[in-house]
Design a protein around this nucleic acid. Structure first.
Length: 689
DNA sequence: AACTGCGGTGTTTTT
DNA sequence: CACCGCAGTT
């Protein structure tokens, strides 16, 4: 982004000194590193991510004797998170009932523990940054002078604290530009307040409004579909988005039997596109929840298609990476109690829960940090038994020697030393499983990333590296140059664009998500999310749903998403997979989709549209494909391809044709085999019965 | 006192 | 399906 801004300013290659550019969290961290001491934050604080936050809260609840049955950690964290996003710290948390009183006490202790650990959580970054501007802050005046202008992108996703921060930082000149679209507000659940943008003009009398209503990205058909999806929302100002581009291809609405068939459709769509000259990176697949990525990955792998999952379990969220990072963090900041508790018995060195509990109790009794308690337990023989004491002593010794090495080694070398001296590497090597090998590879990748960081950063420090990786967002790591099909959640997709987009799982309960389904405001947000997904598409869009879906162990009956029902019939083209030839109780007419699919009707409607449409504007690298080519021509080739006809494959046996596409001179046929299920094979491998 | 295996439970989205 | 807590085992 910085490079692009420099280029637009005609200052290519410049680092744009004085200009700050980053996420709210990133900029807040930067402000706090520079000025935090004015509000009581040490310069070398560490940042706790959601997982650290959860662990710390679990500890707090445990220590306060709060039952995690009535107060599940996740729930308590969620409540505190919400409070933070509204600018409410523990001191301002008003407890109205007995439940809230417990939360309030947990919140207070949690804040104390954070302070003791010299740590700041995500919400805290923003809160502390905002405090820099409070009347009693000694740097408030300096900071209010610091910037001439503030520009906020994706303004519809700012929360109350972020908005107040913007107002403070622009106090001197009152010069603010915000860019946003209320229809793309998708982070309400983490405190984003859509009113920030809807009421902006009211809050800033005299503000100029520039409406960007011409869409340069998508074809007219895609734009019509998008407009239809968003139209039912009430929390919006009506807009008239228009485009001068051609209608383009119809939006394909795919209906399959199962999620595997859907994945198969995704893979064969990509494959067909590649055969027509598209590149893998021209494709993106969006889903509502990360759990949906697995089937898609499997299908793409089977088809030998390169793909990249963006987001999901972040690389830095993997257990082994977090372990290593915890080591580094503890070396960097001895007070980091959550980090210390994480590594004290990793790899297993005989320091179990009861020992840690004792150390933690000792720390509280003496009013010291966990690391100090470790030292005390080593010195004073009565705290722990003989065995545990020796083990803890060995661990303390390990930390001491690592810490001694810290300042003389660059970050990557330090990480390697940790890997070797802690016994972590040996343990993984000894395990000698596919998983342990993978973990070792991940750790080597982390070390490689650190070396890369050392090369590229102006002043590489361990602290800075650690901050980068906790604040790194998922899309930061997405590199379109990698030449792979991109897989991501609709949330992650915001701000990106792709020539051909496939959105999967358009079923009630999946998208819109089950958790939102009986809350009107939440459904509006789901609708905006769907709008975001749809508007990522430039040339081609596929909206997929299935009649049966297995998702994280449960079977869902696929009621078509309400969003599909909002699409104007003129812009869509159906691809409907027939139900399996066999009928069991699951598929035999029962279920909410009953009567919605009908092979005869769908064939008729597809035939009715005549032969394959040629794309109005052929462009370089354009993908041309005809889903209904076969049907338009009746039977295809010597095989007599017809949906529902039976063909034989040398290896897979007899199967029923589901769909096919032309690929050069040949056809790619999707067949449901009795033996192996749905496969896509080239027609030349198929014979008539 | 740590570790292992089992059963039960809950499961969005992300900085 | 993955994670967590628990109970029994080493």
């Amino acid at each position: 982004m910085k490079e692009r801004v420099a280029r637009l300013l005609g200052r290519e290659g410049s680092d744009l000194p004085g200009m700050w550019l980053g996420t709210f969290h990133g900029l807040s961290a930067r402000l706090l590193r520079l000025y935090g001491e004015a509000v009581g934050i040490r310069k070398d604080f560490v940042i706790y991510d959601a997982d650290d936050q959860r662990r710390l809260m679990a500890r707090v609840l445990h220590d306060l004797n709060i039952s995690d049955k009535t107060f599940p950690v996740r729930q308590v964290v969620a409540i505190i998170d919400r409070a933070q996003n509204q600018g409410i710290s523990a001191a301002n948390f008003v407890a109205s009932g007995p439940f809230d009183k417990v939360i309030a006490s947990a919140y207070r202790t949690y804040e104390e523990r954070l302070a003791a650990a010299n740590a700041v959580d995500f919400g805290g970054l923003l809160l502390w940054a905002l405090r820099l501007g409070s009347p009693d802050s000694s740097v408030a005046a300096t900071l209010a002078e610091r910037f001439d202008h503030v520009l906020v992108d994706e303004f519809q996703d700012t929360n109350s604290v972020q908005y107040r921060l913007v107002r403070f930082l622009s106090r001197r000149t009152r010069s603010i530009t915000v860019v946003g679209d209320e229809d793309q507000s998708i982070y309400g659940w983490r405190g984003a307040d859509i009113r920030n943008i809807l009421d902006f003009e009211r809050d800033h009398p005299g503000a100029g409004v520039i409406k960007l209503e011409q869409n340069y990205r998508s074809t007219a058909n895609i734009l019509r579909a998008a407009n239809a999806v968003i139209a039912p929302n009430t929390e919006r100002r009506p807009k008239r988005l228009f485009t001068n581009t051609a209608a383009g291809d119809p939006v394909v609405v795919f209906e399959g039997e199962t999620e595997r068939e859907e994945a198969e459709y995704v893979a064969s769509t990509v494959q067909a596109g590649l055969a027509q000259g598209a590149a893998p990176r021209d494709f993106a697949v969006f889903y509502r929840t990360n759990a949906q990525s697995r089937v898609l990955e499997e299908a793409l792998r089977t088809h030998d298609l390169p793909y990249l999952v963006v987001g999901g379990t972040r690389f830095y969220d993997r257990a082994e990476i977090k372990d290593m990072v915890a080591y580094l963090r503890v070396l960097q900041n001895p007070d980091d109690a959550v980090g210390l508790a994480r590594i004290i018995n990793v790899p297993a060195r005989g320091i179990g829960n009861s020992t840690v509990d004792r150390l933690s109790a000792l720390a509280r009794d003496r009013g010291v940090g966990l690391h100090a308690a470790v030292e005390i337990a080593v010195r004073e023989p009565d705290v722990l038994g003989q065995g545990p004491r020796h083990k803890v002593a060995a661990f303390a010794e390990l930390l001491k020697s690592l810490r001694a090495a810290k300042d003389s080694l660059p970050p990557a070398d330090l990480a390697e030393k940790v890997l070797a001296d802690s016994g972590y590497r040996d343990q993984l090597a000894a395990e000698n499983t596919v998983e342990s090998e993978g973990r070792l590879e991940n750790l080597m990748e982390l070390v490689a990333q650190m070396r890369e960081y050392e090369r590229e950063a102006e002043e590489p420090t361990l602290a800075d590296f650690l901050e980068r990786i906790t604040l790194a967002s998922d899309v930061d790591s997405y590199d379109p140059e990698k030449g792979a099909v991109a897989l991501m959640t609709a949330h992650t997709a915001k701000g990106l664009e792709f020539p051909e987009v496939l959105v999967v799982g358009l079923e009630e309960g999946v998208f819109p998500h089950q958790r939102s389904i009986d809350d009107d405001a939440a459904v509006e947000e789901e609708r905006r999310l769907c709008y975001v997904a749809v508007t990522r598409a430039m040339r081609r869009l596929h909206l997929c749903r299935v009649r049966w879906r297995r998702l994280s162990g449960q079977q869902l009956g696929g009621v078509p998403s309400r969003f599909l029902g909002d699409l104007p019939a003129e812009v869509i083209d159906h691809v409907i997979m027939p139900p399996p030839a066999y009928h069991d109780e699951k598929t035999d007419g029962a279920g909410p989709w009953q009567g919605r699919w009908n092979r005869g009707e769908s064939l008729r409607s597809m035939r009715g549209r005549g032969p394959a449409r040629a794309a109005p504007m052929a462009q370089p690298g354009e993908i041309t494909r005809h889903y209904d080519q076969g049907m338009a021509h009746g039977e295809e080739g010597e095989l007599g391809l017809r949906v529902g006809s039976k063909l034989k494959h040398a290896k897979f046996g007899v199967g029923e044709v589901c769909a096919w596409q032309s690929v050069g001179d040949d056809f790619k046929v999707t067949v449901r085999f009795a033996s192996v299920g749905v496969k896509t094979v080239m027609a030349k491998f198929l014979q008539r019965l």
